[in-house]
Design a protein around this nucleic acid. Sequence first.
DNA 1: CAATTTCCTTGATGTAGATCAATCCTGATG
DNA 2: CATCAGGATTGATCTACATCAAGGAAATTG
Lengths: 250, 250
Amino acid sequence: MTRASSTTKTYNQDCSDCPIRHRAVCARCEGDELEQLEQIKYYRSFEAGQTVVWAGDSMDFVASVVTGIATLSQTMEDGRRQMVGLLLPSDFIGRPGRETSAYDVTAATDTVMCCFRRKPFEDMMLRTPHIGQRLLEMTLDELDAAREWMLLLGRKTAREKIASLLTIIARRDASLQLSMADGELSFDLPLTREAMSEYLGLTLETVSRQMSSLRKEGLIVTEGKRHITIPDFDRLLEETGDDSDGGFLV
Amino acid sequence: MTRASSTTKTYNQDCSDCPIRHRAVCARCEGDELEQLEQIKYYRSFEAGQTVVWAGDSMDFVASVVTGIATLSQTMEDGRRQMVGLLLPSDFIGRPGRETSAYDVTAATDTVMCCFRRKPFEDMMLRTPHIGQRLLEMTLDELDAAREWMLLLGRKTAREKIASLLTIIARRDASLQLSMADGELSFDLPLTREAMSEYLGLTLETVSRQMSSLRKEGLIVTEGKRHITIPDFDRLLEETGDDSDGGFLV
DNA sequence: CAATTTCCTTGATGTAGATCAATCCTGATG
DNA sequence: CATCAGGATTGATCTACATCAAGGAAATTG
């Protein structure tokens, strides 16, 4: 369906069929500007588990996730790891004006990224205010997400953390694909138990136990290790500890 | 020395002596633009502990902290609270394009804010690209800070959390005031134990115990409840769990 | 200058989640 | 089809931090 699982690098493909257009930087670009973006753009593919860049490595591009899921993580000297970013299709990677990555960037699933060479991209930003505006919007959204995440890390119980993560993934996936019928909803979990534990600030054992517990109570149904069905989304929402206003897709 | 502890509201003061200029939105404004900012600007003062806005309340301004410290917090239904933002002088409050506050905004100390009426400010952003650019820079910095904070919340021990908070405050204060001589360094802690606990995702009892423990080990010296002296900054840094590269002010 | 209030400290005890250690799937490989 | 490897699960035990509870110090008030 898409070129998600291909591993060929492809340069300068036409942007018009590029799935990132609905949200990412080039969404409002036209004519000349699209032309310019084409010049500095190329695609890269990564397999699940592959590292894109390590924290501290130089990074001469910014990028947008096309398909798949990438993560940002920080590592402490003794190996403790915390995920600090979860990037779904259309999310932006990299910081204009920064030459090295501050985080480990990893492909959680097979992933395709649309990269823009950094220097010319920065130049273009100066000439094209709406790219900066778009970036500001996206950054503010990420900041809000980070703050939600901080509440989760600082104050939620293990069970609430798991329930929250499942609803977050379900919601974000929902806008893209996902099968759903009358409140029942299912999707493929794109993270290993270990990645989940890094997201949530838990150990993978605790993640596993809480998943089992939710399964036993019928809040989720699993098929294989990764496919999840949520029979009653609202019931799971009640386990997140969040305000239960807002309907399905807030 | 400044108007920090005054409680009078003052409108349309001259921006030229405004302490926010070194970092905040108007840093690069000139002539006309400064003129326009003057038109939509006013000062507000808050006493320590006072709430600026509650989460969900409408907020018709954006602002910059002039003096004092403000915090952003989230509250769960059952009262669990997590601080998600710590705003020092020159930091920006509010989100262009958002009509209600997503967080509780509280003055941690006596605080003066320089407010801009939101609508005209947004209009001005569209006309004046460098304001947006400035805002993007600041938002990216905040996002980095949030991610550092996530590592703290998700993976650090109580002791590491306390040490980290002390170094964060010391560092940020350092650029503004603070007395320091050969690696010794002292400052007034602008947060109650409770506020510290909300920052760190701990209880205030744990904060108190860890402070006592650092005191007993000579890593910090206290005078009264709030004044802290750090006799050897590097030794405290070692307790944070962070990479110990970078010198004093990285 | 008592009395209150606010903030902080310290102790005793409980518990959620970490740690250590087997075992179990499921799909890949020779 | 036996072996293996990389997840995932589950159990037994430990411990860091939370919770509950009782003071204590310093500022604030009548």
